[in-house]
C-alpha cells in the first residue's frame, strides 16, 4: 500500500502551513475580507442588472462584517455546491450564502449565530402540488449540495431527485417539464417566483417540510474570527440594522414580502 504514506507526507506538508496562521490577522493584514456569496439567488445574493455587482441580503451582512473589521469586502461568486469547498480550500474567509446549519456540515466548517430562518418548500405548476404525500413518484429539481437535496433523498425515497447547479436552472427544467416541482428554502423560492416573468403559471406549494437556520460559514477553529462575526451580528440586531436589512429585501414594499419571525440570537 503506497497511497497512505503518500497521503501522510502530503498531510504533513499541508498542516504545517495552516497550524500557525490566524485567519483574523491574515484578513486584517491583507485588508480584504473574501466572502463567498450567491450570484443567482435573489434576494440573498444576485447579480444586479444595472451595476453588474453582486448584491442582496447576505451581501449586506457580509459588508457589515467587513466594515466592523475595517477592511475591504471582496465577493467570491458561488453556487450551493461550491460553498464548503471554497471555505475548506481557503478560497474564501467566510460564506454568506443562505448557508443552512447542519450537524454534518459542522464537522467540516464552523457556523456563526444564525441570522436567518426558513423552511424547505416547493414550487410547482398551479394546483399540482398541495401536500407532501403527492411528492411520491414526482421528479423534483434541487440544487447540488443543498440540505434540501439530502433531505428529499433520505426521507422521500419514492421521489426522483434531479440536482442542478443553481435554483434558476432548476426552474428552467420545471418550465420545460423535465421536473414537476423544485425545492429550496421558502424565502428563496418566494423571491425567485416573484422575479419570474411567467409567475402566473406557478405557485409556492402550501406546506413546509423543515425548519432551518442560516448562518455565516467559517473555517474550522478560527475562534477569534467567529467571535467578531457573532459580535457584529448581535450588534446588527441591537441597533435595528438587521431589521432594516431584512425589510429592504423581504419587507412589505418588496416583490415577495415575508413577515420576519426570527431575530438574531433566538437560536444558537
Amino acid at each position: 500500500m503506497k497511497t497512505p504514506s503518500l497521503l501522510l507526507a502530503l498531510t504533513l506538508l499541508g498542516t504545517a502551513g495552516h497550524a500557525l496562521a490566524d485567519r483574523l490577522d491574515d484578513i486584517k493584514k491583507a485588508g480584504v475580507l473574501r466572502v463567498a456569496a450567491f450570484d443567482s439567488n435573489p434576494p440573498f445574493g444576485f447579480l444586479d442588472a444595472k451595476t453588474h455587482q453582486i448584491s442582496g441580503l447576505d451581501v449586506e451582512v457580509a459588508q457589515a462584517i467587513a466594515s466592523k473589521l475595517k477592511v475591504k469586502l471582496e465577493l467570491v461568486p458561488t453556487n450551493p455546491a461550491n460553498r464548503i469547498p471554497l471555505l475548506v480550500a481557503g478560497k474564501a474567509d467566510l460564506v454568506a450564502a443562505n448557508f443552512t446549519v447542519t450537524e454534518e456540515r459542522k464537522k467540516q466548517v464552523d457556523f456563526s449565530l444564525p441570522y436567518f430562518a426558513s423552511g424547505q418548500q416547493f414550487i410547482a405548476r398551479k394546483g399540482s402540488l398541495s401536500k407532501p404525500e403527492q411528492l411520491a413518484g414526482l421528479r423534483v429539481g434541487v440544487d447540488k449540495g443543498t440540505t434540501q437535496e439530502i433531505y428529499l433523498r433520505e426521507k422521500y425515497s419514492k421521489t426522483t431527485v434531479v440536482a442542478y447547479d443553481d435554483t434558476p436552472l432548476a426552474f428552467t427544467a420545471l418550465r420545460n417539464g423535465n421536473v414537476q416541482a423544485i425545492s429550496q428554502d421558502g424565502s428563496k423560492l418566494a423571491a425567485l417566483l416573484a422575479n419570474a416573468p411567467d409567475k402566473a403559471k406557478y405557485e409556492l406549494a402550501p406546506f413546509t417540510l423543515t425548519r432551518e437556520y442560516q448562518a455565516i460559514g467559517l473555517p474550522k477553529g478560527e475562534a477569534r474570527l467567529t467571535k467578531v462575526v457573532n459580535e457584529t451580528l448581535l450588534e446588527l440586531e441591537k441597533s435595528g440594522q438587521a431589521h432594516k436589512i431584512y425589510d429592504r429585501w423581504f419587507g412589505p414594499g418588496t416583490k415577495a414580502p415575508l413577515p420576519r419571525d426570527f431575530k438574531i440570537g433566538d437560536a444558537v
Binding site: P85, V88, E104, R105, K107, K144, G145, I150, V162
Partner: peptide, 22 residues
C-alpha cells in the same frame, strides 16, 4: 453533470455534498 445526469462526476459531487469528504 451540469444538466443533472447522474453520471460519475455528478455522483462524486453528490457523495461530496453528503459526506463532505471531497
Amino acid at each position: 453533470m451540469v444538466i443533472g445526469v447522474a453520471e460519475l462526476s455528478y455522483t462524486s459531487r453528490q457523495v461530496e455534498s453528503e459526506t463532505l469528504l471531497a
